[in-house]
Design a binder for these strands. Sequence first.
DNA 1: CTGAAAGCGCTTACAG
DNA 2: CTGAAAGCGCTTACAG
Lengths: 350, 350
Amino acid sequence: MSEKEPTAPRSGERITIREVAQDAGVSVAAVSKVLRDAYGVSDALRAKVRASMAKLNYRPRASARGMRGRTYTIGLIFPDLRNPFFADIYAGVNSALERTQYQAMQGVNTTSGALNITSGALIEAMIDRQMDGLVVIGPNMETQALADLGARLPLVVLGQHNHAGDAFDTVNNDDQLGARLVVRHLVANGYSNIAMLSLSPQNSSIIQQREIGYRLEMMEQGCGDAINILRETQVLRDVQVSVRRLLSGADRPEAIFCWTDLMAFEAISVATEMGLSIPEDIAIVGYDNTMFCDLAQNSLTSVDQSGELLGLQAARLLVERIDGRTTAEHFMVPPRIVARASAGTRTEQE
Amino acid sequence: MSEKEPTAPRSGERITIREVAQDAGVSVAAVSKVLRDAYGVSDALRAKVRASMAKLNYRPRASARGMRGRTYTIGLIFPDLRNPFFADIYAGVNSALERTQYQAMQGVNTTSGALNITSGALIEAMIDRQMDGLVVIGPNMETQALADLGARLPLVVLGQHNHAGDAFDTVNNDDQLGARLVVRHLVANGYSNIAMLSLSPQNSSIIQQREIGYRLEMMEQGCGDAINILRETQVLRDVQVSVRRLLSGADRPEAIFCWTDLMAFEAISVATEMGLSIPEDIAIVGYDNTMFCDLAQNSLTSVDQSGELLGLQAARLLVERIDGRTTAEHFMVPPRIVARASAGTRTEQE
DNA sequence: CTGAAAGCGCTTACAG
DNA sequence: CTGAAAGCGCTTACAG
């Protein structure tokens, strides 16, 4: 190799724990202890080692540490990269990890189109790479599969309401309440014939919770007869066709509650193409309160689920698990409706 | 630990190379060779080892491999997660890696607001974790800093036009041509007073190239007098203020070329709020051809830079570098304009 | 073509 | 509190 070293460490490549030990005049084991903030080192020794580490610009190699201990790396598994909501979660995870030795490495689960099953490949790849723990986001996995995974390594699941004993922690937005808030808001604004655009297949407990919330609140608001759940895949083409059919029908609803902003934007698009005005002809509500909701061309009423807080809690819980907690914890964040023009007060038509 | 093993490997935890060797009746070194597809093993031995690996469900540990050889992990560094364009790049990287042993791990460079400098922290964390190579996307780093990084490990830079000898490969969209295409398209559709909304600080060579393309083509089209470049940070608030000022002025341009779709969506929002119609009052063009361009409420004319192809090439080049190539390669993808309503044919006003 | 041995850079018991 | 030795699971020269 013809590599030139910028700061030219004497031995050749990278500074190792051995060189730090030599420089500080202590044993390799002592340096290791300082590195891990382990119990049983004098302040004097710690200071000497710290000084040498700084002087030599020492950085431990995660893979070597992982051979016996931890890699100080946690895996983050996203279901998708297109939804800007995930950026909030990521920010939260990072801010929780900021003052720790942990670093998050992210992977996106490649779901094959409409099938949308979380493949084990990425998870196995992360385990092969010795992740100390995993945060899995919005997985389309059976609860049992998650429990099995949680038996193999520390696991926090974000966006899954089903528990499985102490196998893993969960962090969730209260999706049932979120859906209720949407219905309440619409009813308060004068809408009663409210349809819901949901996801197919609806094996995700998030979807299930939102559907339940929608149903229950519709009934409580006396709109039980109008309950109408349309389930569609995430494929844009399919969504468009579905929405178009819904809006063309004789019994066109007054409002559509879309399970995610991305679908709501599609609904706005179709309505616009059909020459309908929002919310006069059709009110639309989304979920996630994505940054695009604020744009005037969307002005989409949506449910904020505090993605950053969700990510923060998930990372915090995972580090606790890595540090030895073996009982499950479940964190739930309250949703909040953000009102915009797309579901503004209904004005009588004819 | 009270962990239960699902498939119950005899020894306790995970199957190691030693157990495979024992099962196959060969040496540990032989298994290692089969694992690495290394030169010098008989077909018979290879078959035996493969059979044992499959039977025992053996999976090598990346960190152990990394102690002497490779981790078969490459780092992907994104500047941001909010731009859906990056999802295309990610898909391309993954499809290039699909049939290899390599796995991409992704990190997002946390840029601090308007400052937008690629911090070394994430890069160092990736090096600590023994990434075999790095794909850095749209970095705001000096060319020299990239060259230094390339001297430390295999490096491909995506979205940076400046070369530095053989230190790293680059993969780019032809941004200068892309900007030219925008101007040509607008001029062909009847617009001549075309402003450009660019990024500040414009230390990215992508931005520089797009500005150059805009300037040159404006001059060649005889619109040199109308050249007007506005530079704004990525902060939404700032963009809104800038666009509003631009659109309120007495000399309002006929069209705005925005350096990225995200900014174009903001421009559409501001124009909409001001009661202007698009493209009658103001035409708008973006860059990236994000999925949101297709929505009727945006219908944004944009430049497609084939994100997936960019990602694919970057990963391919990186694996070549890891495999020993030491001379630089530079890959350039031609851009393509995608015409939509936001820059449709200009109709005379007064 | 095949294998025994050393070693990668750490952590982990275990002595002192 | 401190350190010498063994070992984590692989790969790498080097013999045979």
